[in-house]
Design a protein around this nucleic acid. Structure first.
Length: 481
RNA sequence: GUCCCCAUCGUCUAGAGGCCUAGGACACCUCCCUUUCACGGAGGAUACAGGAGUUCGAAUCUCCUUGGGGACGCCA
């Protein structure tokens, strides 16, 4: 029987979760759930300069928002480790990496490197000028481990570098790309442990994946060439290689890697713009993977049951905000009204829109019934609910044209007088119909000339939902401005 | 520069040699519904990067070219 599937998502905490990272997390999560395996969250915070505790919290919050849950790693609430393969933060695993590095040194597979950046840079330039690859060569005389320790004790610092000696092709059977062949002379000696004692990505990634018994590694394509170094390390340690799958990139419209220049790129950006996590989830699922059944809108259950690595797409995907908007509107509409209201409310509040009548569930139900097909994002709710907020009423620019119609003043005059005859706080749909008929007769105006001025009087703009639906949603006092 | 990856409508994609006069989705256009805006319904336009091969037959296999991306960090 095959070993239980164990996959991980290993972000470096340097800001909000990027949509590309979110997709990697989603794929790993779905793969684990599909196979009844485990999904592990590991924090790759070995870059002391850029990693922050705050970023880690942000990333965890974003993963939670997306509804991705992990079985091992920092507890989403307490941040304390869950699972028995911890610690799950690389900054807390230094001793493990050091022990591994020393193992390599003892075997002569790695060495202490006292060379300075300047020296290495010089050597690199020389290599290039000689038409050779710009890679770090093994020094002519390697400092013996014993001497190195003395020098370090005396205050010098050294990196630990892996010594590439094998001259052969490494063959990777990538789950996304098929067979990929790396000639070992592609790379020079590479750093495992920095001179400050922190390990580098390629090193801790191997140690952790092996020790955490990771079976499958799905990660972005940028790591494809890194895999050669990692394969060398797996070999050196005698650890079994996991299965790798290198995912294509998500690009911006200009076909460049998605970055800040492209506007929204983090999950948090999309949350703030009023996108539902379900929609963002579903959308990123489909850029880089396709359903074997050709489905587009998929529930989490369907995603899990259909998710296999055969459906990964090797070519990069351009992020299409327009399609995301469509998907978001589909999810918006599918939400039960009380849930939709719960999610809409904060956005209305943020926009300063107060709706006294919203305390009435029936009112909310009616209003959402009208507006939900017009909203693309929760943020849009503000535009639609705005005319219903008494204090925010404004006559829009485009409405002036309607008011300038010769019939408009007749209609409005009649509307006002008919309205004053009506008793009660609100008009029902039937009452409005009757009232509109009366205006029609009194003013002698019909069609567009009739209802557009009324609409402007009611919501401040010539276009919008049907009046007979809109009017019952408003108190009589605000039907005429 | 060296090495690696990628290449089907504007975009996401289906397609694993004949089922392809290339299918779906978003967007776009037209019409229908509608006293506006939307929703909904019915249609439409639009793609195999180029060139050589292999084959009776190629979007699918091979090679080359071109284009895009990545790695070559004591970033991840």
């Amino acid at each position: 029987m095959a070993a239980k599937v164990r996959v991980r998502f290993a972000p470096s905490p340097t800001g909000y979760l990027h949509v590309g990272g979110a997709r990697t997390a989603l794929y790993n999560f779905l793969f684990a759930r599909h196979h009844g395996g485990e999904f592990i969250l590991r924090i790759e915070d070995t870059d002391l300069e850029r990693s922050t505790e705050e970023s880690m919290r942000m990333q965890i919050a974003d993963l939670k928002w997306l509804g991705l849950t992990w079985d091992e790693g920092p507890n989403p609430e307490t941040l304390k480790d869950m699972g028995s393969f911890g610690p799950y933060r690389q900054s807390q695993r230094k001793h493990i990496y050091m022990e591994h590095a020393e193992r390599l040194i003892a075997q002569g597979k790695a060495y202490y490197d006292f060379r300075t950046d300047e020296e290495l840079e010089k050597a690199k330039e020389k290599a290039i000028s000689e038409g050779k690859n710009a890679q770090v060569e093994t020094p002519v005389a390697i400092v013996s481990p014993a001497d190195a320790k003395k020098r370090i004790a005396a205050g010098e610092s050294a990196a630990i570098r892996y010594r590439v000696t094998e001259r052969k092709d490494y063959v990777l059977n990538d789950l996304v790309r098929g067979e990929v062949r790396f000639p070992s002379d592609m790379i020079g000696d590479f750093v495992c442990i920095r001179s400050n004692g922190m390990p580098v990505y390629n090193f801790c990634c191997v140690v952790d994946d092996a020790l955490m018994q990771i079976t499958h590694v799905f990660r972005a394509e940028e790591h494809l060439s890194n895999t050669l170094r990692q394969m060398m390390l797996y070999e050196a340690f005698g650890y079994a290689l996991p299965q790798f799958g290198h995912l294509s990139f998500i690009l911006g419209e200009d076909r460049q890697k998605l970055s800040k220049r492209h506007g929204a790129t983090s999950c948090n950006d999309y949350r703030l713009k009023g996108y539902l996590p379900e929609a963002l989830n579903n959308f990123i699922l489909l850029s880089g993977w396709s359903s074997p059944k050709g489905d587009e809108i998929m529930s989490r259950e369907e995603q899990i049951s259909q998710f296999t690595h055969e459906r990964f797409i090797a070519s990069p995907a351009v992020f299409d905000n327009v399609k995301l908007e469509w998907m978001n509107s589909m999810y918006l509409r599918a939400l039960p009204h009380d849930e939709l209201w719960r999610r809409t409310e904060p956005f209305l509040k943020e926009a300063g829109i107060e709706l006294p009548m919203a305390s009435d569930p029936e009112w909310r139900d009616q209003a959402l019934g009208v507006f939900k097909t017009k909203m693309q994002t929760l943020l849009d709710a503000a535009t639609w609910f705005l005319p219903l907020a008494d204090s925010k009423f404004v006559i829009r620019e485009e409405a002036n044209e309607v008011y300038a119609w010769p019939e408009a003043s007749k209609v409005l005059h009649s509307w006002k007088s008919q309205l004053s005859k009506h008793n009660g706080e609100r008009l029902s749909e039937a009452e409005f119909d009757a009232l509109q008929d009366a205006v029609k007769t009194e003013a002698g105006v019909k069609g567009k000339q009739l209802f557009m001025p009324i609409r402007v009087a009611v919501i401040g703009q010539p276009h919008g939902a049907e009046l007979k639906i809109l009017v019952p949603l408003l108190p009589k006092s605000s039907l005429l401005k």
